[in-house]
Nucleic acid binder design. Structure first.
Lengths: 208, 208
DNA sequence: ATGCGTAACCGACAAGTGTCGTTTATTAGA
DNA sequence: TCTAATAAACGACACTTGTCGGTTACGCAT
């Protein structure tokens, strides 16, 4: 049965899951996600197909774990966190989202990859972004306005949508550049929840 | 072969697609989406299974068409459009999104419907929202800031995310109420593209 | 080191998927 | 009205999916 991925004692379990994730990662560099069968993954991981189902309900769940894990790793490598002291602190989060998504769609430019791949990582990515943003928002207790959860969710989906649009662009500008375009779209969302103090940014108290 | 849904001459094609969409709509009132097979849909539509594949690549594509069509119908019934004259004009669009999503998830509260249903309508809904917003944004030609497409995409995903969060809430407030909470999060996004004139809203020229 | 617990392997199963080629019918235009 | 085009029906195909019960082998605590 699929157990939560974090903190697994048994080395056999860690080993198997690592193999499965690695196998999918490898296969996706050559094939489209929906062209990959569970059997393919199991074979590439030198693992029995039935064992696959001992860990993940289906290949989508494996993809989900892969994406969420990879994105978290990027954030961890860069020591990215969002403390909410200033909405502009979302910049590295957006940049990480750009880099991660650019990485994992450039892997297979040859064929139509969109249809099956894109709509699946969405929940994984937005959830990951949401989890980064939320801690910086939660201290703001109860207000008449939107809840911290609402703000975090809205912002994470907005970020994902913006990045996705950027990825669609044929000759897209570098990630660092587009972040400066996206950030101003996101900042007002994050500001909807009462914030502490922020050095830059014209504050924009209006609306709400 | 799956051809674009709009403007189909042949009445045979329209008839079959209508049958298939109606069948799925009916079946989803009783079953979860992932419990429904293509055979089930074809049977309920009194259509051969192979014929199904003449129109849709898989059952997800059918769901997509169903959702997009339904959402468009709501917008049409209410004569909703976004002309961009004022960002607050997005209010009825958001309200329509609330109503539509609330309608099509309340249909099957009995069992766990979430996992399979939610992540699938996303592209359909966000695309539908995007298509409504874009015309009101496009006249604003070229600028240094984000493109109209970027704004439309970001706003549509933000709206979808916000509504989705609202739906998750156990005892959620009425749609009219939550729209007033969501709207202020969306308005600044739409304002990122130079706008014509707007009676209300403190304009907020800042940022970018 | 020796067992207990349990992860991984294995073969098999019914069911669903997507794609053929062929045949029958309906539609729209000459 | 007749005919060419093409949509729908049909049966069959190789393949994938998810699940099962039973067996083997590994990890860890005693």
């Amino acid at each position: 049965m699929p157990v939560s991925d974090c903190e697994v004692k048994d080395p056999r379990i860690r080993r198997t899951r690592q193999l499965l994730q690695g196998a999918l990662r490898t296969l996706m560099q050559a094939k489209s996600f929906d062209e990959i069968s569970v059997q393919d993954i199991a074979d590439a991981a030198t693992v029995n197909r039935a064992t696959f189902y001992d860990h993940y309900t289906d290949k989508f769940a494996l993809l989900d774990a892969l994406v969420a894990g990879g994105f978290h790793q990027i954030l961890h490598e860069r020591s990215v966190s969002y403390d909410g002291s200033c909405p502009s602190a979302a910049r590295p989060v957006i940049l990480a989202a750009c880099d991660y998504l650019a990485l994992h769609q450039g892997g297979c430019t040859e064929v139509a990859h969109k249809s099956a791949f894109e709509p699946l990582i969405e929940a994984a990515i937005t959830n990951a972004i949401r989890r980064v943003l939320l801690p910086g928002l939660s201290p703001a207790a109860v207000t008449a306005g939107p809840s911290a959860e609402m703000v975090a969710t809205t912002a994470s989906w907005a970020i994902y949508g913006a990045v996705k649009e950027w990825l669609k662009t044929p000759q897209r500008p570098p990630a660092e550049e587009i972040v400066s375009v996206i950030l101003p779209l996101i900042v007002p969302i994050l500001q909807a929840v009462p914030l502490a103090k922020c050095p830059e940014a014209g504050v924009v108290p209006g609306v709400v």
